Computed example of a mutant assay.
Amino acid sequence: MTPTANPYARTYPHGPFTVVEVLGEIDLATAGFLADHLDAATSHPAPDVLVDLRHVDFFDCSGLRELCRADNRARERGGRLRLVSDTPRLHRLLRAASLFRRFPPLAHFPEPDQEPDPE
């Protein structure tokens, strides 16, 4: 079941992927709204989730915690979770948290029939 869109996240299909589009500011007060969408996106076997962070204004460790939790869940179910971001600010955050290798951001959505090259 897909959770209802809220001011901070919405989920939709894009080819074989489930996209969780993140919006606005993700912090301790709003990370739960993102978690609802990530939990739903990773609830089935072999999920292939793209987390679109291109429309995020602010993202802190609360959001990173939810990404790690969802990534663990996706892997446990034989799937994967990838980030889509072209924002240097978010790339710096991932590097500072030592998560850049775990989540090498994609600049755009991958084609459904090819493996993307991280950028």
Rank of each mutant, 00 (worst) to 15 (best):
A5Y: 00
N6M: 08
N6A: 08
A9V: 05
A9H: 06
T11Y: 05
Y12E: 11
Y12F: 12
Y12P: 02
P13V: 02
H14T: 13
T18N: 04
V19F: 03
E21P: 01
E21C: 01
E21M: 00
E21W: 00
V22A: 08
V22R: 04
G24W: 03
G24D: 03
G24K: 05
E25A: 06
I26D: 02
D27C: 12
A29G: 08
A29F: 10
T30H: 07
T30C: 06
A31I: 13
G32C: 11
G32T: 12
L34M: 15
L34N: 10
A35Y: 09
D36C: 06
H37C: 07
H37M: 09
L38M: 12
L38R: 08
D39I: 14
D39V: 12
D39Q: 15
A40L: 07
A41G: 11
A41V: 06
T42R: 05
S43R: 15
H44D: 05
P45V: 11
P47E: 08
L50S: 12
L50D: 14
V51H: 11
D52V: 00
R54G: 09
H55G: 04
V56P: 01
V56Y: 02
V56K: 01
D57N: 11
D57H: 10
F58Y: 15
D60N: 15
C61G: 12
C61T: 15
C61Q: 13
L64H: 09
L64S: 09
E66C: 11
L67G: 02
L67W: 07
R69A: 14
A70C: 10
D71M: 03
D71R: 12
R75K: 06
E76S: 05
E76R: 02
R77E: 00
R77W: 02
G78R: 03
G78E: 03
G79Y: 02
L81F: 04
L81R: 00
R82C: 08
R82A: 09
L83S: 05
L83P: 00
S85Q: 09
D86P: 07
D86E: 11
T87P: 03
T87N: 12
P88Y: 15
R89Y: 15
L90Y: 13
H91R: 15
R92I: 11
R92V: 14
S98C: 05
S98R: 14
R101L: 09
R102N: 02
F103Y: 04
L106W: 13
L106M: 12
H108Q: 13
E111S: 07
E111I: 00
E111R: 09
P112R: 07
D113I: 01
D113R: 03
Q114D: 09
E115D: 08
P116T: 10
P116S: 14
P116K: 12
D117M: 05
